[in-house]
Design a protein around this nucleic acid. Structure first.
Lengths: 208, 208
DNA sequence: TACAAAATTAAACAACTGTTTAATTTAAAC
DNA sequence: GTTTAAATTAAACAGTTGTTTAATTTTGTA
């Protein structure tokens, strides 16, 4: 599998990502991408083969990024609760910075039966699940976390909350009187982040 | 605003809803809808005017449904916690039964600036928020719920979790060894529902 | 400078898009 | 049974889609 892209290819990938994120995969034409990237329409086919393969290349390009990010996370010397906080923060930042590809992967592509091409994605998912399990098991052994939590359902809550919020931007901007996009972005990084952290921590700790 | 549709129109609306849910609005052509509904392509324009207006009609058709559903909910004689449980159950069932239109509204249409046509949706949202606020305020006065929760962020968590899970069906089917679609549906209605209820209740009750 | 490979272009391709037309069939009313 | 409106049809419309072609330009190498 090809994982190295030249300057021009990366330029196309980045612009495609933005457009896919804004208008979806189906909603973005090769000509729109070409115009935005100031290249000829044929260049997409020339470099990537097809629109579908462009998306695959984008996935490969982005997921190789993610691999590096997660490994640089050091969580030693923290108690389980602090680890959860930090992991969620990292998680949200990662989604925020890769909004485009994440939206495509989780809310457009995943529903269809294109499993084969999503093996890279599944690897990332499994790795995330593993780190989360490690932390939670530690907390459970220390008697801090309850033991009847279904761990794989935690990431849908984190990701789902984030995406539902950002994808209904217009509504929440109005609701919270956020006038600019910057204010909205800021709300996500502060209030929404805290909300998600509180939610997960409460779920892990609370005994009914 | 037209709110009554004849048999044929409803038939078209329902099939369009399914297809929109599966392949998105952009990903579904009028010809596909016509073929599935066993009608002529021109009938969509004849009855609704355009594809865009077909979607609007679908929104109107579905949201008038929702209005009725929520008003039939009686929550008297329950304590706040039970009310939350019941409201979430109702909420999830409603999303489950209207998956198609919900996906379009919250994950396709909302991001674009077509606010005007979404006024109906905003009404539903505001009504939901109001019922939730009433229950939570009651719980806060009784000293059961904490007071620093941002109430409008609760529904993103409910809806987001549900949608992230169902839209990544293939992945979670594999993860939880759910072989058939029925088993998956069943998991949603039991485990996932409980997970969401626990999460929200924990968030409301837990004191750090 | 000469040559070959890579990059870039405009044009064309067929298939598909949403929509409209004008003709035809069906149904209802008188 | 005739008339009138509604429903349905196939065909055409113009525009867009992803992709390929074949010609041209640019680039790197000897």
């Amino acid at each position: 599998m090809k994982t190295d892209f030249n300057e021009k290819q990366v330029q196309i990938l980045l612009i495609a990502e933005t457009l896919f994120a804004e208008n979806g995969f189906e909603g973005t034409s090769i000509r729109t991408i070409a115009k935005a990237a100031e290249i000829n329409v044929a260049m997409v086919s020339y470099y990537f083969g097809s629109k579908e393969k462009l998306l695959e290349a984008l996935i490969v390009y982005r997921t190789s990024d993610l691999k590096i990010q997660i490994e640089n996370l050091s969580l030693e010397d923290l108690d389980p609760i602090e680890k959860i906080d930090k992991l969620i923060e990292l998680y949200i930042n990662r989604i925020r910075c890769n909004k485009g590809i994440y939206r495509i992967l989780h809310f457009e592509f995943a529903s269809e039966e294109k499993e084969d091409k999503l093996k890279v994605l599944n690897e990332v998912r499994d790795r995330n699940l593993k780190s989360l399990e490690t932390i939670i098991h530690e907390g459970q052994q220390k008697g801090i976390f309850r033991k009847d939590v279904i761990i794989p359902l935690i990431s849908p809550t984190i990701m789902g909350t984030f995406f539902h919020f950002t994808m209904n931007k217009a509504y929440f901007k109005k609701l919270f009187n956020l006038e600019t996009d910057e204010q909205f972005e800021n709300y996500v990084q502060t209030q929404l982040k805290t909300h998600i952290q509180q939610t997960i921590k409460a779920l892990l700790i609370y005994e009914s």
